[in-house]
């Protein structure tokens, strides 16, 4: 298999990588770019959401995106969420509400929530549940994750 060269924007920075074309965005981020906050929990089948990243503004499973499909596009990962050392309100809310247990699903869940809040700053609980429904979590029972998203949305609306 011949490697391909792909240029994409990752957390605001232009990155060019040369990698195998059968590699998914998930493993390109993890292995070629060293961004290990994106996780694989289902074996690359798009079932768990642990690899959720934001691709051109939309939450996607990075395991279902071949790296070539990301060429010329913009990716946000958990590592890019804090700005100038300041955590994103979602990150703070996840910490403060106790929404984090083992943490393996946390980056994906936060990014799914961010994609939601980016398009709907004051979502209903049902909208939050729907936005998180692709992110499996075995520890928390989701209650505190949902509460964290609600809390972050409130924080952000006060800040505006």
């Amino acid at each position: 298999m011949k490697p391909i060269t792909v240029t994409l924007t990752v957390n605001g920075q232009t990155r060019t990588i040369t990698t195998l074309p059968n590699k998914t965005l998930l493993y390109a981020l993890r292995e070629d770019l060293g961004l290990t906050g994106v996780k694989d929990a289902c074996g690359g089948e798009g079932e768990c959401g642990a690899c959720t990243v934001i691709l051109d503004g939309e939450a996607v499973n990075a395991c279902l995106v071949l790296i070539g499909q990301a060429d010329g596009r913009s990716v946000e990962t958990i590592e890019g969420l804090a700005q100038d050392g300041e955590l994103h309100p979602l990150q703070c809310a996840f910490v403060e509400t106790g929404a984090v247990q083992c943490g393996f699903c946390t980056p994906g869940a936060i990014l799914a929530a961010k994609a939601l809040l980016d398009r709907d700053p004051s979502p209903t609980d049902d909208a939050i549940r729907e936005a998180l429904s692709g992110n499996l979590c075995r520890c928390t029972g989701y209650s505190k994750m949902i509460a964290a998203v609600r809390r972050a949305a409130e924080e952000m609306s006060h800040a505006r």
């Binding site: 290990t36 958990i78 590592e79 955590l87 910490v95 106790g98 943490g103 980056p107």
Partner: peptide
């Protein structure tokens, strides 16, 4: 607050 939570929400864990 649990101290490992910050690493877990930033992808550093």
């Amino acid at each position: 607050l649990r101290k490992d939570a910050w690493d877990k929400v930033t992808g550093r864990a």
